[in-house]
Write a protein that binds this DNA or RNA. Structure first.
Lengths: 211, 211
DNA sequence: TAGATTGTTAATCGATTAACAATC
DNA sequence: TAGATTGTTAATCGATTAACAATC
């Protein structure tokens, strides 16, 4: 393992954008694409595209560009989406139920294998092809179904408790939608998404625009 | 208007985190908070907290810290959440229906005033206190209900078309959940959120952790 | 070959952190 | 007053961009 210079977090994000665009190009049966063209489609410079890719290897062909069908599996491998991930959704409110059924996840190799809630009124309800289970059953399910990711969709007050439960159950990855900063140990991975905050990024610009 | 040094985009995002944390502190009836403490709660340095705030003014009190009930309205004003925003949701699939009913938005001053879809089978359906309307009715609604924001929840293929329709209808702000890079004129504001990509940021780290 | 385009180094730009005088 | 903590400048760090030799 070489002493790897650190890869900017923003570069990882762009890798996903490249992959998304490449899959679009493949659907159009495009065979190659240059860094210039890829950048143009995503509002990035060609230098940025090449730099991001070379953090991980040499994927291009001088004078030619990048072969679409060659680069796609490479990016998938880097991003870890060349395999299946088993996911549980914790919290069966509006958002939890929607994400459980979201095709955007299922298409990308994420299997939603369980939906959990503490509310007795919700337990037993069917949501798509899932049935809401009790949080108490989480630990058993994680072992039985080899779960790697928990999507947290409970209210802010419950998020840390539910996260702790998920981690104790052996789930290493947390995708948090609750509007709270979670404390997780370094041996686990956490990504947070606060949709209201994202909307505030919009209103910040909008306020200036409309004033 | 002074020649304002540019504010990092990341700083705007953190402003929202400060606001969220301050509201939590206020619920606990805390009166003041220091930059050190605020940073600790959010995994940031105290210098970062102070720097971010001073992009917009002098809100603190030397020797004391920041008064919670004083800073909250200041941040709300900066972020544009000291007013109501009227929002329509375009696309009444799983995600669109969930976001239409999402309390996390409603609580923050976002009024969802319409839910639209092109599918005749969906038009007329009730979703919470909304009824799905035809996309054709969008333009009329925007004028009647003074809409500033459209949340795009249609499939990738339809997103640009629906966005163009929203912009033509006079909506200046686009919050896009479709997995596609939109083209919008500079006179409008756009924020994109690809949930599958966010999940890939998690699997990138997770792959390394589990290998 | 000539033209195109990568991979990579060096230069630039921007954001974060450290340090400390101001001051409550 | 002494202790705490801000606001701000300067130093550091990191990320982006420009430039170009390598090469298909």
């Amino acid at each position: 393992m070489s002493a790897r210079r650190p890869v900017p977090k923003a570069a990882i994000f762009r890798l996903s954008l490249y992959l998304r665009e490449l899959e679009r190009l493949r659907a159009e049966t495009r065979e190659t694409v240059s860094s210039r063209e890829l950048g143009r489609a995503l509002n990035l410079t060609d230098a940025q595209v090449r730099k991001d890719l070379t953090y991980f290897g040499q994927f291009g062909h001088r004078g030619v560009g990048y072969r679409v069908s060659e680069l796609i599996p490479q990016l998938r491998h880097i991003l870890g989406t060349d395999r299946k991930w088993n996911v549980v959704v914790l919290g069966a409110g509006n958002l939890g139920r929607a994400l459980s059924a979201y095709r955007g996840f299922r298409n990308q190799g994420f299997n939603i294998v369980g939906l959990f809630d503490n509310d007795p009124a919700k337990i037993g309800q069917d949501v798509g092809d899932l049935t809401v289970e009790s949080m108490d059953a989480l630990s058993t399910t994680v072992q039985a179904r080899d779960v790697q990711i928990a999507i947290i969709c409970v209210p802010a007050e419950a998020a840390q408790t539910v996260t702790d439960l998920a981690l104790r159950s052996g789930i290493p990855g947390i995708f948090n939608f609750a509007p709270v900063t979670l404390e997780v140990p370094g041996s686990t991975v956490e990504v947070s998404e606060d949709l209201a905050i994202r909307l505030e990024q919009l209103t910040f610009d909008l306020s200036k625009l409309l004033s």
